[in-house]
Amino acid sequence: MQVETADMVKVFSRPQSLTAAKSTYCPGCHHGILTRIIGKTIDELGIAERTVCIAPVGCSVFAYNWYRCDAIQAAHGRASAVATGVKRADPNLIVFAYQGDGDFASIGTAESIHAANRGENITVIFVNNQVYGMTGGEMAPTSLVHQKTTTTPAGRDPAQVGYPIRFSEMIAQLDAPTYITRQALFDTRRILDTEEAIKKAFENQVNEKGYSLVEVLSTCPTNWRMSPIASNKHVADVVTEVFPLGDLVDRR
């Protein structure tokens, strides 16, 4: 449908730092919102020409396709170590690792903690949707107690597989990290909060302040078997009870 915009001014458009590639995410998945926010941040800071994206393994494996910047696809869980290698090779580059909960908080546990503990001057975006999306909805380290997944068909039983891991709180115990925060995207207020947090996390790197981690509570309507709207409500009402929103560390 064509709309008349002749006497109007454009107030919202696709960030310049994003490519024209169509998203490969499922309908309603928050990864796309986050992609836009990162693109907007790169635009605002004017850093596209020196930014390197580290793409993980998982639903966001194609992250190297979304941004008009250099990118490296990393082995599962190793994005923070790869980011370390890039940043140490050229400290002038702005390096961000984009990782899901399985990548960051399970198979990449060691790499994630130690990059934070070294205070690497990098930005890590940690997308927590409590499920392995790409492989078909298996239990994630962050899956909620009693959450049904394809590998916990009767619901996550803490007696068998433990509790959801609050990884950001764990990392917040370290002395080195500069900024650790947990944000969400289930309504416009939280989207604006996340925009602010991501900008801070990139600015910290630009200003050589050290390690920043933004955990973002995200939805997976497909594997949660909920509508996108119901998924948002689930994050607001249930997930934030287990993973409270807000800053955990801010040492800028």
Binding site: T5, D7, M8, V11, F12, S13, L18, P27, R36
Partner: peptide, 26 residues
Amino acid sequence: RPSACVGCAFCAMTCPDIAIEVYRQK
């Protein structure tokens, strides 16, 4: 209901597919 649009951009902000552009009266 196009006549009701105020150009607030909440729709675009929330769109995971970055499919929405928003315009306002000059």
